[in-house]
Structures are given as C-alpha cells and as structure tokens.
Design a binder for these strands. Structure first.
Lengths: 223, 223
DNA sequence: TCATAAATAATAGTAATACTATCAAAAATA
DNA sequence: TATTTTTGATAGTATTACTATTATTTATGA
C-alpha cells in the first residue's frame, strides 16, 4: 500500500504557497540542501536563487525573508513529527513503551516518506538540530508568535506532555519536561558531535548516546 | 571589605584586549546594553560605534566581528558563573544543598560585583538566555573550538558535573546532565517569558518557575 | 477567437551590513 | 630629537536584504 502524507502549513508563514507551483517546491527542497551545507547564517536567497536557476525576486514572492523560510521548514518538521508520534503509537498500550518510542523518534533521523518529491531527511534532521532555536530566539518573538506559527511546536509538546501525564498523572511539569525533552534531544546530539566534552558520549555509543541519556533521564524523573 | 574579581578571557577571542583601554571597556559595556536592546541579529558595529561616539574601524581593531564580541561576553559570564559556584559553595558540605545553590545561580540574575566599571547584570542575564546558543550553533563550530574559546563553558559544565557525581557516584551521565541543566535553565526561562504554553509556568510562580522545575528534575533523576 | 486583465518572473535598482585599506595624529621608545 | 609603533578617523568595497519597475505569460470572458 502506497500513501502520501501532506501537511497544511500555516499560511501566515509564506506570501505564496510554495506547494502551489514547481518553483515553490524547488525553493523549499533546495533551501534544505543549501541550509544544511552553508548553515543558516551563510545561507542567502541569492545563493538559493543561483542553485535553482531563478532570481532572488522569485523567492521573495514566496517568503518574506530567510527566517520565514526556516520557520516553514520547521513547521513542516513539527507537523511530520506529531504525525509520526501519533502513527507509531497506534495500538501501543504500554505507557513506558510509548515514552521510549517518543525518545527514539526525537533522536533519530526521520523515516523516508514516499512521494516522488521528498525532502532530504538527513539534512532536515541536521537543520532541526542546529538551526531550530534560531526561529524563536529573536527579538521579534512576540510579534511572530501572534500568527500562531509556533502552534505545531506547541501541539507536539502538548502531545508528548499527555503521554507523560498518562505515565504519571500527578507529575507537575509535563509540558516543561516535554519541551526539555525536545530541546535536549537537539543540543545533546549537537554537543556529542561537536563539543563532546559537554556530554558523556564515547566512541562506542556515539549513535545511541542521546536516546540512552534521555531514556534514563525520563524514567528517573518520572515514577 | 571591598574586593574586585576580574577574569582573564582567552586572548584568541579578541584582536586587542578591550580591558587595556578606555574605549575597549566602553565597547564591551555598551555592547551588552545594545545587544540586549536590539537582539544579536539587529546589533551591528555601526550602531555600537554611534552609541559610544567612535568609528566602526575602532571596534574592528578589538574584535574581528560581532560573533567574537558575543563570545567574549559569554566567556566573561561563564568565568564569573564558575567563580560564583565555587565561592557560594565554600563551607557548604551538604551535597543536596550544593545542587540547590547551583540551580539557584543558573536561574537568577547575577549578583552585582563591585567595581566602578561594571556590566549591567540584568541585560547580561537576558543575553545569556536568548543569545548564548548562537555562539556554538554555527557552521564554523569546529574551527572556533580549536582556540579553546569554549573552555570556560566546559569548565563550568565539569564543575557542576563533579557535584552531581559527588551526590551520586554511579550516575552515568553527569556531564550531559550538567550541560542539560545549563541549557534548560536558559530555554525554560525564555519559554516561560515568551512561549509559556511550552512550560507549566503560572502567574503565581513566574519568578521561581524554572528553579522549581530544575530542582524537581535534578532530585528525581538522581539518587 | 480575440481582447483584456491578472499573475508571474526577470531586471535593475537601493539601503544597510560587514568588512578593509589608507592615512594622519599621538604616544612610546631609542 | 628622531624614529617607530600605536591609535583613531576617513573613505572606501563586496555582499546582503530587500523593493520597484518592466516584460512576459497565463487566465478569463465577451
């Protein structure tokens, strides 16, 4: 059985829906590749335009600026992650098992979704790890937040918080623990790659380090 | 008794020691004020030059770019924080008390240090919360790391990890828990201010929320 | 079918940012 | 006193982030 999952990303993020045209799709796909390669700071619309053989003005027609484009990519990621959590927890009744699944999803590359036009999941994962905090750690956070552009993040956070509450109903900080889980998944992965002295990673457990740490943390905090 | 604490910041961070001249001191002091006001992205050397009535070139003589200037400010913060932890734990023998002190330090404004030429601690605290991750979440992280510019962060992390190990010697992730503590202190404070739905903050516990959450987390993870 | 309107991309700008090179004055040293 | 070094000021350039205008294509409807 083949099926395809698509997400309606909040239309306040873009000026024109990138899903509505071929160039639009190319913009998002190539933005992920180029942002992975250059990092958010060195990524520019000019460079993206050259990569997809169009002009800067064309990209500006779809996105106000590169911050909005990153926000679009992350919204897509948060929506996909929420879907994956929901999907993978179908028919799982064991609550510890649910939490383990969540940790695994947060600390591993996204599975390839079918569909001829797909984003590079390895690159997307690295962008989430290294760049995601840059969308809210800005002076304009209140202004941006008004358009509900962080709703998918809040939804994902609330979804995980519900599983935490299910596991331990009297735990007082389910949402903070949930957001800590998400954020820690990112920075522990980043640290274990680039600043390993800030972690307890070793050569042997490189790949599984973050999920081991988070599982241990979670099951010690709770119960 | 009056005393003053100063820190030798790694000289790879600056081109010319800002402590060595009056303009240099003005650059750092006013950078903190202006970076707080504008946020790192909108902060420029031009604007800083106007604020202290000098030229851009003067500032470039001290710091290669604004990233280095932020790194200098954070190095100062990390050194000061390590000093404070050491200082406040003098004569404290009770290990749980030590951990509580660390959490309190990480989640509250820095105390004013004496000295006629002092940085604005309220502003510095907000910069640490909102901008600190931007110094390492860059493509050049490996290159930058070679000059040991993150050493004060690693030292602070190791210092807290030692207290964790003292409390529970067989805990496997003392350094990761330590860096998670530091990072979580930042983003939970940020979230409770700007994106409260990602936390369990309430109107009543606004000020103490992050320390309550972290204390609870820490004492449940350990033992 | 053809005229007209609307949508789109390309061209060509501008203002601001992130630097660099040069120069002149002041300070330090020999 | 002469000479070197350090300093800040001036005046640039390349890139970035965006905008306005124009040309072309596409859609619509009489």
């Amino acid at each position: 059985m083949e099926f395809q999952v698509t997400f309606r990303v909040n239309d306040k993020i873009y000026l024109r829906d990138p899903e509505s045209s071929e160039v639009g799709k190319q913009i998002v796909k190539n933005a992920i590749d180029l942002m992975y390669e250059l990092g958010f700071e060195h990524f520019t619309f000019k460079k993206l335009a050259i990569a997809i053989h169009c002009t800067e003005a064309t990209i500006y027609r779809y996105f106000e600026n590169k911050h909005r484009l990153l926000l679009y990519i992350l919204n897509w990621y948060w929506c996909y992650m929420e879907f994956l959590v929901m999907f993978k927890l179908q028919n799982v009744t064991d609550t510890p098992e649910k939490l383990k699944t969540v940790v695994h999803l947060l600390t591993h590359e996204l599975p390839e979704s079918s569909g001829q036009f797909d984003y590079n999941k390895k690159f997307l994962n690295q962008i989430v790890i290294a760049e995601s905090s840059k969308v809210y750690l800005v002076k304009e956070v209140n202004e941006i937040n008004k358009n509900e552009v962080f709703k998918p993040y809040k939804d994902l956070c609330a979804q995980i918080a519900r599983i935490i509450s299910e596991y331990q109903p009297d735990y007082l900080y389910s949402k903070s623990l949930s957001s800590t889980l998400i954020e820690t998944a990112h920075h522990q992965q980043f640290f274990s790659m680039y600043l390993p002295k800030l972690t307890d990673v070793s050569v042997e457990n490189q790949a599984e380090f973050t999920s081991l740490f988070l599982e241990n943390l979670l099951f010690n905090v709770l119960r």
